[in-house]
């Protein structure tokens, strides 16, 4: 094993550590889950403790896409477009059961899970999820960010 490999893996870890605590999220808020998203973001639960306190409403400035709420077929092209506009590295969190599987909306208007349109990293089930499970999902995402091979 050469010296380079040793350094690479350590640098990866350092970058992963930095990235996981500087999450700039794009809250793609459509529906009921947005209320719990607000509750999570505000002072009671304070998502800022996890380095994800600053939402960026421009896809080009964000690196985690929070898809919060039901996606209808009318909204789906917009979501795809927002995702495409985000720059690498980027992650997607499916917030709430509607975004995971369509939830209890199984009808002509709703998309049955956003993973049929865009790739998803972390699924947070719940209708809507409690702030505690949102934070749990966020921590799982952080672990994932820290552990993955970093591109830079």
């Amino acid at each position: 094993m050469g010296l380079g490999a040793f350094f690479t893996s350590k640098l990866d870890e350092a970058i992963g550590w930095a990235r996981k605590y500087s999450i700039f999220q794009y809250p793609f808020v459509t529906a009921c889950c947005g209320m719990e998203y607000m509750a999570t973001a505000c002072s009671h639960y304070d998502i800022d403790r996890f380095g994800a306190g600053l939402p960026r409403f421009s896809p080009r400035q964000a690196d985690v896409l929070f898809v919060v709420g039901t996606i209808s077929h009318k909204m789906a092209p917009v979501l795809k477009r927002v995702y495409d506009q985000m720059t690498e590295p980027k992650w997607v969190v499916a917030f709430g059961v509607c975004t995971c599987t369509g939830g209890f909306y199984n009808n002509y208007a709703t998309v049955q899970g956003i993973d049929t349109i865009i790739p998803v990293d972390v699924y947070i089930p719940g209708c809507p999820p409690r702030p505690e499970s949102v934070i749990d999902g966020l921590m799982k995402l952080q672990d994932r960010i820290a552990a993955q091979a970093q591109r830079y």
Binding site: H73, K74, A76, K80, N106, Y108, A109, T116
Partner: peptide, 20 residues
Amino acid sequence: HPLRKDYPIDRRQPLIGPAS
């Protein structure tokens, strides 16, 4: 017209992505 009684509730017409 989806609220007509003869329109099946799960007949999807997606703009992008698969139907289910």
